[in-house]
Deep mutational scan, measured.
Amino acid sequence: MAAAAAAGAGPEMVRGQVFDVGPRYTNLSYIGEGAYGMVCSAYDNVNKVRVAIKKISPFEHQTYCQRTLREIKILLRFRHENIIGINDIIRAPTIEQMKDVYIVQDLMETDLYKLLKTQHLSNDHICYFLYQILRGLKYIHSANVLHRDLKPSNLLLNTTCDLKICDFGLARVADPDHDHTGFLTEYVATRWYRAPEIMLNSKGYTKSIDIWSVGCILAEMLSNRPIFPGKHYLDQLNHILGILGSPSQEDLNCIINLKARNYLLSLPHKNKVPWNRLFPNADSKALDLLDKMLTFNPHKRIEVEQALAHPYLEQYYDPSDEPIAEAPFKFDMELDDLPKEKLKELIFEETARFQPGYRS
């Protein structure tokens, strides 16, 4: 834990890192770190609560700039109880001085990944967590956004079992017609939660990839272990087919990539493993919904509104309290091709509203 900075004593240090967030945020305490930044909790002297502050230093890398800009653009436009918001952003007053960006968010005690390492969940908890994931996802999908990296560590939890989806750095506007060349190379989302079509096709992607990830998360809540822990690309596919069985001819016809289709045709026939054999203690309604989410063919996979209306979630289902976005989200430009200098300018502009004396 960093010592509390005395008023006016300059930035606090946390594990050798400068955290320049005073005077409003003090009493910093280390939480963890990701690929390009550290997260601390801090005391907000204005709202009198502890908050989470993520320090991001992305400006050396085009990919990190892209992810940072995506996350900020999306989260500043989203407003939903099951999606983490941005409360404040701290950065230098000029673009030349801006080396880091500090993002202030609600402090959540833990995440689903940490929880599943230590606790076996009751059916009631599984049901409530799944409902909140789908409630947040309904809003995301209504904005025409794909999260693309749903996994237990991106689901934040607090002691009252509130759940918030975080990390929109890989999110995209849904565009089933656009052929994202190089899709697989830039697709760094965790393999275990990846839909089979991501490994088999490169053309376009749809909201059904997020539903697949939610199915993987439900299976993990039922058993405290990942359902498809593939060691590499082909191993991942083999794990999936080992449980779902061989795809039907109709399902194979959806695979545009001939090499991928021929690979699947070359494999020995596998039978589907019954879900109640894998999860003998699970609620039968939970397994019915799991089956509809972990469907090989993305066109037959359940959609988020149908999933919310499934009998497993009937005690929570309330369409009048499951809000959607006001308007579909649009990125003005494809960020993939922009140089990091341009992305830095866009991050600077996007964060201006939090600067003292800002006038829109």
Rank of each mutant, 00 (worst) to 15 (best):
P323F: 01
I165Y: 08
K292A: 03
A352H: 04
L237C: 10
E33P: 15
Y317V: 00
H120S: 06
L294N: 08
P268S: 14
I126E: 10
P268C: 07
S284C: 06
E345G: 00
P274M: 04
N238P: 03
G32I: 10
S246M: 09
D332C: 01
Q306K: 12
G215V: 14
D88G: 00
V173F: 10
P280N: 07
A171R: 05
V173P: 02
K99C: 01
R261K: 02
Y205C: 02
A92I: 04
A4Y: 00
A282R: 11
L222Y: 10
A7F: 03
L134P: 10
D20Q: 03
H61I: 07
K285A: 10
Q62P: 15
I53G: 11
H269D: 10
F348E: 08
P226V: 07
T160R: 08
Q355M: 07
L156C: 07
I165M: 01
D332A: 13
V51F: 13
K340E: 07
L267P: 08
R91E: 03
K342L: 06
L241C: 06
V46S: 11
E350I: 01
P152E: 08
S202P: 03
R67P: 04
L28C: 04
N238L: 10
Y25G: 02
I133K: 07
D88T: 00
E60Y: 13
P298R: 09
I84Y: 08
A4D: 12
E341F: 05
Y64V: 15
N276R: 07
H232Q: 12
N201E: 11
G357D: 15
A7T: 13
Q355T: 10
M333T: 00
I302W: 07
I56W: 15
K48S: 08
F183N: 11
R79L: 14
R77Q: 12
D167V: 15
K151N: 13
M293W: 01
E334Y: 12
D100W: 05
I83Y: 01
A325T: 13
R91S: 15
F354I: 14
S122D: 02
E322F: 06
Y205L: 03
K207M: 15
D175V: 14
T110K: 06
Y358V: 07
L150G: 02
G245P: 08
D88N: 14
L155S: 04
K330Q: 06
Y316D: 12
I255A: 11
F348P: 05
L163K: 05
D288Q: 01
I95E: 04
V304A: 12
K272F: 04
S360L: 13
S223V: 10
E33Q: 08
Q132V: 10
K272V: 08
L294A: 10
E71A: 15
N224L: 07
G22Y: 09
K207T: 13
K292R: 07
D88S: 00
Y233L: 12
D124L: 07
G16Q: 10
F331A: 01
L130Q: 14
I209T: 00
G357K: 07
S29K: 09
L115T: 04
G34K: 01
S142L: 11
S213N: 11
N123L: 08
F296I: 15
D336N: 13
K259A: 05
G85R: 06
V104S: 01
T63K: 15
L338H: 05
S29R: 14
L156N: 04
D162Q: 02
V49R: 14
A352L: 06
S153G: 00
I165V: 08
L150N: 02
E322P: 00
L290P: 08
A286V: 10
C65S: 15
D44A: 13
G136R: 12
N224P: 00
Q236W: 03
L218I: 07
Y43C: 13
H180K: 07
A189W: 09
S284T: 14
Y36S: 15
I198H: 11
Y30E: 01
P339Y: 07
Y36P: 07
V14Y: 09
D106W: 00
P23M: 03
K340A: 10
K285D: 04
I89T: 00
I89Y: 07
N144K: 12
L308S: 01
I255Q: 07
I89L: 06
D251M: 00
I211Y: 12
K114M: 04
I302D: 09
R77G: 08
V273I: 09
Q355S: 11
R194Q: 08
P152V: 01
Y64K: 15
D111G: 06
S284K: 09
M108E: 07
L170P: 00
L264G: 00
R353A: 06
R135A: 08
S246R: 13
E305T: 10
F329Q: 09
K300Y: 08
Q236S: 08
V273K: 02
I95T: 00
T160Y: 08
K344G: 08
R70N: 02
E186N: 02
K340G: 09
D321S: 01
M108K: 15
M221H: 10
P58R: 15
I256H: 04
I211H: 10
L287N: 09
R15T: 10
T351Y: 01
R77K: 01
D337A: 13
C216A: 11
T159S: 15
H125F: 03
H232R: 01
K342Y: 12
C254Q: 05
A195V: 13
P152F: 01
N271L: 02
D288T: 02
D337E: 15
L75Q: 14
A52T: 11
R148E: 09
G245C: 14
D20E: 15
A9F: 01
S202V: 10
I90Y: 04
N82F: 09
F19I: 15
L200C: 02
K231L: 11
I324T: 00
K55L: 07
Y43V: 13
M98Y: 09
L163E: 01
K292Y: 09
A7V: 07
L287T: 04
S266N: 11
R191M: 09
T26G: 01
A9S: 13
A327R: 08
S223C: 12
R261H: 08
R277N: 06
L234N: 03
Q66F: 05
I31R: 05
N45E: 07
A52K: 02
Y358M: 08
M38A: 14
Q66D: 06
T295A: 00
R191P: 03
D283N: 14
P323D: 00
P298D: 01
E12Q: 11
L76V: 00
I74F: 15
D100L: 09
R67D: 11
L244D: 02
K272A: 07
L234T: 07
V214M: 12
L278A: 11
L252P: 12
T181K: 09
G169D: 15
L338I: 07
I217N: 15
L237V: 00
H178D: 10
P274D: 08
Y113L: 13
E12A: 10
T94D: 10
Y36M: 15
F279E: 07
A174E: 11
I140Q: 09
I165C: 05
A352D: 12
L28T: 03
I74K: 09
V21S: 06
S208G: 10
E220T: 01
D124I: 07
Y131Q: 07
H269I: 09
D106E: 15
A195E: 11
E349N: 03
A5S: 14
E350C: 02
H125D: 11
A260M: 02
A3N: 05
E334Q: 01
Y317G: 08
E96H: 00
G16A: 10
H299G: 11
R261Q: 13
F354P: 05
G169I: 03
